[in-house]
């Protein structure tokens, strides 16, 4: 299998889908400037630069999607989505329902997010849960080049508005991807590592932290299962519950802040539907409820790190075997 970067995987997905379907087009700030090869192949009508105005970019995508096109828009950094919330949430997310099903919105809105480039809080906020909480939207946040490609292809073919988040730290990572145009279906989590003692549930860059943690746990003879949610909405409840029933110990790890985050939903699903299987409380390891800092050590401290995941896993495995459980740290700090 060829080794490609996430950027290349995204380009491949866009190119393949635009070849396949003439209704697909892409526009946004600098899209035509950065993807000149696509301008050459598909023409300036289908690969467009736009004014630096996220509201009208997203609104234009919604209007076009409802009337026959399948737009992909690049909104650059996730905090800029604030300027596009009206168009994404009120128009794309609601007008299908409001109209009694008269319209659909096959569109993809892409944005970068997460710690890694030291861009600070106005270019980095893991706000994916905002969109999970809004009706009518789907939310994707991959962790591997193969998934970036396969999920983006699925998102473009989906009949609904999809938020497609790229974790900044993964944007230039490389990995193997299948040579063909494999689709990765939305709404299906991936089991990245099998294990029997504890399940680490994550998405985006912290999946890799969980994989490292699982290796270290193996050295301590703790078998950790790692699940990559990949799609945050619809959430793959079945895979989550199967994991809870299998290991009875769940740790949810994400960079986004804790309160009302995806981890809260995972924990609730497990508590509501697999309570009897639990051997220990569900644990969340998340970023703090703080704007993302720019300074490298602070930014790293913002992100749950492998050592903290190991520590939490050990404590869950020891739960009930010790007299009392220490309070686990809420925020993982780099070591």
């Amino acid at each position: 299998m060829p080794n490609v970067s996430v950027q290349e995987a995204i380009s491949q997905a866009l190119t393949e889908e635009m070849r396949r379907d003439p209704r697909v087009l892409i526009f946004g700030e600098g899209v035509a400037t950065k993807r000149y090869d696509m301008v050459k192949e598909f023409g300036a009508q289908r690969v467009r630069n736009t004014p630096l105005a996220e509201g009208i970019i997203a609104g234009t995508a919604a209007g076009a999607a409802a009337t026959g096109l399948r737009p992909v828009v690049d909104l650059l950094f996730s905090p800029f989505l604030c300027f596009a919330m009206e168009e994404i949430v009120n128009s794309a997310g609601k007008l299908r329902y409001i109209s009694g099903g008269q319209f659909s919105f096959p569109m993809v809105a892409m944005a970068l997010t997460g710690a890694g480039w030291g861009v600070g809080a106005q270019h980095n906020q893991n706000n994916e849960a905002w969109f999970v909480h809004s009706p009518g939207l789907k939310v994707v946040m991959p962790s591997t080049p193969a998934d970036f490609k396969g999920l983006l292809k699925a998102a473009i073919r989906d009949e609904n508005p999809v938020l497609f988040f790229t974790d900044i730290a993964l944007a230039f990572e490389s990995g193997e991807i299948p040579a063909g145009g494999e689709i990765v279906p939305l709404g299906k989590a991936a089991v990245r590592r099998e294990g029997t003692d504890v399940t680490l549930i994550s998405y985006a860059k912290t999946v890799h932290s969980c994989m490292k943690a699982a290796e270290r746990l193996a050295e301590r003879e703790i078998s950790a299962q790692v699940i990559d949610l990949r799609t945050l909405k619809p959430l793959d409840e079945e895979t989550i519950l199967n994991a809870a029933r299998k290991t009875g110990r769940i740790i949810v790890v994400h960079e986004a802040s804790r309160m009302c985050g995806v981890g809260a939903e995972v924990a609730s699903i497990v508590a509501e539907k697999a309570f009897a299987s639990l051997k220990a409380p569900v644990k969340r390891l998340t970023g703090p409820d703080a704007p993302a800092p720019a300074s490298f050590p602070l930014e790293q401290a913002f992100v749950p790190q492998p050592d903290a995941i190991v520590e939490a896993a050990v404590q869950l495995v020891e739960y009930g075997q010790t007299v009392a459980v220490r309070n686990l740290p809420d925020v993982a700090v780099a070591k």
Binding site: G59, T60, G63, A64, A66, T67, E86, S91
Partner: peptide, 17 residues
């Protein structure tokens, strides 16, 4: 203003298609 944000996309469909 919602109609103003959506109109260019609807017109883009007319143009493109």
């Amino acid at each position: 203003g919602g109609e103003l944000s959506l109109a260019p996309g609807v017109a883009l469909s007319q143009q493109q298609l």
